[in-house]
Design a protein around this nucleic acid. Structure first.
Lengths: 332, 332
DNA sequence: GCGCTGCATTACAGCGCTGTAAATCGAGCG
DNA sequence: CGCTCGATTTACAGCGCTGTAATGCAGCGC
C-alpha cells in the first residue's frame, strides 16, 4: 500500500498538516521539524496523491493545448516546447486535436468534457470571434496563431507576421531578385505575412504586382504545387523568387519549379515560413522564418497563469528569426 | 458553483448513488428513473468531478506515452493516433519526452513523479532489459519500437521489421535493380530491417555484399548524406538502389545522390521506412514502409488494459504496408 | 509574574465521488 | 394474504489531501 500523509506524520511524530506544509513548501515550519519530516518521507517513499490534492484544492493542475492536428510538424514542435515549459509552471499538459473543427474547439471552451481544466491554450481555426467572447470567463484562455478576429477577445500570443513577411521578402530582394511571387493559402489567410511582403516591395521602391500574389486554396504542398504549376504552364514568365506563407507551400512550390526545369535557388529563390523540422533534409534545404517556439510557449503559459476573469485581453509577441539555407543561397 | 451529484439527486428526487449509477452506466436502474436522472443532469448541466472520482476509485484515468521527442515526426504521428484511440478506452494520455535518456525513462517507470498513472506506453531508447525487469509490477507497461532486449520483459507492440525490410527490398528487386545498398544507423540498430533486406537478396538468389551495408552512425539525414557521400566520393561504384532503415536516412541519401548528379529514381531508386508525414512534399516523394500506426496505438492500449501483474509478456505485431511513391517509380 | 505577540503546530471539517452492505420494493407463488 | 427472491434503491463510510480556525509556546515589556 502506498504511504499516505498520515503515515508520514506518524513516522515523523508530527501532525498530518505539518507534513502537508513541508510537502508544499509552506513557511512557518521549523528547520528541525522539516528535516525530520523529509527523512520520514524519504524513508517511506511517500508521493502525494494528486487526485486527493486536486479534490481538496478544487483545481486540477492540468491545462489543455488544443491544436488542429498533433502530427502536423508545426504543431508537434510547438507541443514539444509547451511540454518542456509547462513543467516549470507545475502544469500537466493535456493535448487535444480539434481537426480545426469549430464544434471541437467550442466543446473545449464550453467545458462539455468532464475533466476540470485550469486553462486552455488553443490554436483556433474554426472558432469565431463571437465564440471567444461568449466563453466561460472563469476558464483562462490563451489563443495562438493567426485566426483573424478571435484574438481581440482573449489573450493572444503570436509573432509579428507582417514584419516577418517583410524580413523574408527583404532577404530575397537583397539577393538581387526583382520578380518576387507570393504564395498564400487563400485571399484572407495569412494576410499579414503577405502584407509584410508588400511592405518590403514598397520600401524597396518596387511595384506590387497583385497578379503574382497567388492563392493556393489550401495548406498542403500539393495545393501550392498545382497552383504554381498551372500558373507556369499557362505561359506566365517564371518569377525569380517565391515567398511562401508556409513551409509546406514552399516545398510544393519547389516541386513545381524543379519539375519544370527551373533550378532552386539559381533560377528561383524560395523562402518559406514556420521552420518545420524537415527543412533540413529536403533538397534544397529551406530558407524560412523561424518563430521562437520556446518564447511562444513561455509567453502563453505566463499569460494563462496571470489571467484574471475581468482583465483586458493582451496581445503578446514572440520573436522570430530568418534562417537562411540552401533554397535562397545555394548549396555548399 | 458547479452542480454536484447531490444537487442532481435532489433535483431528480433520488439518492446520490442512483445518479452515480446512471452516470456510470450501471445496470439495475429502472428506465423511468434513468430518464428522470438524465433530465436533471441535463437541466443542471452536471459534469462529474474527475478528481473526486479518481480519489474514490483509486485510479487516475491517465496513462503516459513516453517518447524520445514529440517533435520527431514519427513520434508526433504516433502520439496523434494514440490520442485518438485512447478516447475509446476512456483514458487521458499524458505525453512525456525522455530525450531517449535512460534516467528519464527510468524515472517514469519508478514513479518518481507524483501523478499516479494507470499505465505507461513507452518507446524506449536508453532502458536496459534489466531496468524493465526490475520495474514496479503494479504499473502496467507496454513497450513500442525496436530497442533490442527490453521487449522480452514487458508487453511489446511493433511491426515485423524483418518482413518489412524484405518487402521493401523485394520492391527494388522487382524494379530490376541488382545493386541494392542498405543504410542503417549503426551496426546493431535496426538489425531486423537489414536482415529482411538480406532475406530478400538471398530469396532472389543474389549475393549479400556486406560492403554495401553502410552504418551512418546517426539517425539524422545529415548522417546518411555524409556516409553515402563519402562512400561515393571514394570512387566506389554507385548502387542502383538504396534501402534506408528510416525515412530521414533515405532523405539524406537522396541529397547525397542528387548532389552528385545521380537521378532518383532513374539512376538510383530509394526506399525509406516509417512513412513520416513529409514524405509527400519532398522531391521526389518517398517510397516507404508505412507501419499501421492506428493498429499500433490500439494494440498497445489493449495490451495495457488487459495486463495483469503476473501475466507473461506478450509480443504483438501490427500490420504495415509498402507505399510506393516517386523515389522508386518516378514522377508522373 | 502576567498578558501580549507572533511563530509553529494541530484538529477537524470537508472537497465530490464510489464501494459496500443493507434496506426497500414488487412480482410470483402456494 | 404472507412469503421469497431478485431487482432497485439507499445510507454511509471513506478515498488522501488542504483550508480554516484554534491552540501551544517562547520571548518580551512592564
Amino acid at each position: 500500500m502506498r504511504p499516505r500523509l498520515t503515515d508520514v506524520a506518524e513516522a515523523a511524530g508530527v501532525s498530518m498538516k505539518t507534513v502537508s506544509n513541508v510537502v508544499n513548501g509552506a513557511e512557518h515550519v521549523r528547520e528541525e521539524t522539516r528535516q525530520r519530516v523529509l527523512a520520514a518521507i524519504d524513508k517511506l517513499g511517500y508521493r502525494p496523491n494528486i487526485a486527493a490534492r486536486n479534490l481538496a484544492q478544487g483545481r486540477s493542475g492540468v491545462i489543455a493545448l488544443a491544436v488542429p492536428q498533433l502530427d502536423r510538424p508545426y504543431f508537434a514542435s510547438l507541443a514539444a516546447r509547451m511540454l518542456d515549459e509547462a513543467e516549470a509552471f507545475g502544469w500537466i499538459v493535456q493535448f487535444h486535436q480539434t481537426g480545426g473543427r469549430r464544434e471541437a474547439e467550442l466543446a473545449l471552451l464550453t467545458e462539455r468534457h468532464p475533466a476540470r481544466l485550469d486553462g486552455i491554450v488553443m490554436s483556433p481555426l474554426g472558432l469565431t470571434a463571437e465564440d471567444v467572447r461568449n466563453r466561460d470567463p472563469a476558464l483562462p484562455l490563451v489563443l495562438l496563431g493567426e485566426k483573424a478576429g478571435t484574438e481581440h477577445h482573449a489573450d493572444h500570443v503570436g509573432i509579428d507576421n507582417r514584419e516577418a513577411g517583410k524580413v523574408a521578402t527583404e532577404h530575397l530582394l537583397e539577393l538581387g531578385r526583382r520578380h518576387v511571387m507570393a504564395l498564400a493559402p487563400g485571399p484572407r489567410m495569412d494576410d499579414e505575412r503577405i502584407n509584410g511582403y508588400r511592405d518590403a516591395l514598397v520600401a524597396a521602391g518596387l511595384p506590387v504586382d497583385e497578379d503574382i500574389v497567388l492563392a493556393t486554396g489550401g495548406l498542403r504542398g500539393q495545393d501550392a504545387e498545382r497552383t504554381l504549376g498551372d500558373w507556369l504552364d499557362s505561359g506566365n514568365p517564371a518569377p525569380d523568387a517565391v515567398f511562401a506563407a508556409t513551409d509546406w507551400l514552399a516545398m510544393g512550390a519547389i516541386r513545381a519549379l524543379v519539375l519544370r526545369g527551373l533550378r532552386v535557388p539559381q533560377d528561383v529563390a524560395v523562402v518559406g515560413f514556420d521552420d518545420i523540422p524537415y527543412d533540413l533534409a529536403t533538397l534544397p534545404t529551406l530558407t524560412t522564418v523561424a518563430p521562437d517556439r520556446v518564447a511562444i510557449a513561455r509567453l502563453a503559459l505566463q499569460a494563462l497563469r496571470d489571467q484574471r476573469p475581468q482583465s483586458e485581453p493582451q496581445r503578446l509577441q514572440a520573436p522570430f528569426s530568418l534562417v537562411v539555407r540552401e533554397s535562397t543561397t545555394g548549396i555548399g
